[in-house]
C-alpha cells in the first residue's frame, strides 16, 4: 500500500476558489473599504489573515456578512493581498509596495509584510 500524491492538487483547488470568487459563487462576506467592495470566502480569509481569523473566530461575528475596514486601508493594497490569498502570487511594484506593506500589517499577514520589507530594502 502507498499514497499517491497529486502534486497539482493544492494549486488546482486554489484556482477553483479563485474562479468561484471572480464569479461571486459561494462567497459569504463582502469587505468594504474606501467605498469599494470585495467579495470573498471567509474560510480563505481566516486561513490567510490573522486579522480575519480574530474577526470570524469571535462568536459575536458568527453571522457577519459584511465588514468595513479602517478607512486608512488602501483598496489597491487589499486587492493585491486578496489576489495573493487566492493565487499565491504577490504582485509587488515600487508604487504599491508601501500600501501593500501597510495593508499586510493591518491584516496581520506578517510573512507577506516581511517580504514587502525585504523588497523595499532591496530597492534602496
Amino acid at each position: 500500500d502507498g499514497c499517491i500524491q497529486f502534486t497539482r492538487h493544492a494549486g488546482d483547488v486554489l484556482l477553483n476558489f479563485n474562479r468561484l470568487r471572480s464569479r461571486n459563487i459561494l462567497t459569504d462576506v463582502t469587505i468594504q473599504v474606501d467605498g469599494q467592495q470585495f467579495h470573498a470566502h471567509k474560510a480563505i480569509l481566516v486561513a490567510c489573515s490573522g486579522f480575519f481569523y480574530s474577526v470570524f473566530m469571535d462568536p459575536e461575528n458568527a453571522n457577519l456578512s459584511a465588514i468595513s475596514l479602517d478607512p486608512k486601508v488602501d483598496p489597491k493594497g487589499l486587492s493585491l493581498l486578496l489576489d495573493f490569498m487566492y493565487t499565491s502570487c504577490l504582485n509587488l511594484n515600487d508604487s504599491l509596495v508601501l500600501a501593500t506593506l501597510n495593508t499586510a500589517i493591518y491584516l496581520q499577514m506578517e510573512h507577506v509584510a516581511d517580504t514587502c520589507h525585504r523588497f523595499i530594502k532591496s530597492r534602496h
Binding site: G2, Q5, H9, L15, N16, R19
Partner: peptide, 21 residues
C-alpha cells in the same frame, strides 16, 4: 505519511471551474 511509499501524480486532480457559465 512518513514511512509510506508515496508516488507523485503530476496530472490534474480535480475538475476546473470555468471563468464563466
Amino acid at each position: 505519511h512518513e514511512g509510506v511509499n508515496t508516488i507523485k501524480e503530476m496530472g490534474r486532480s480535480i475538475h476546473e471551474i470555468p471563468r464563466q457559465d
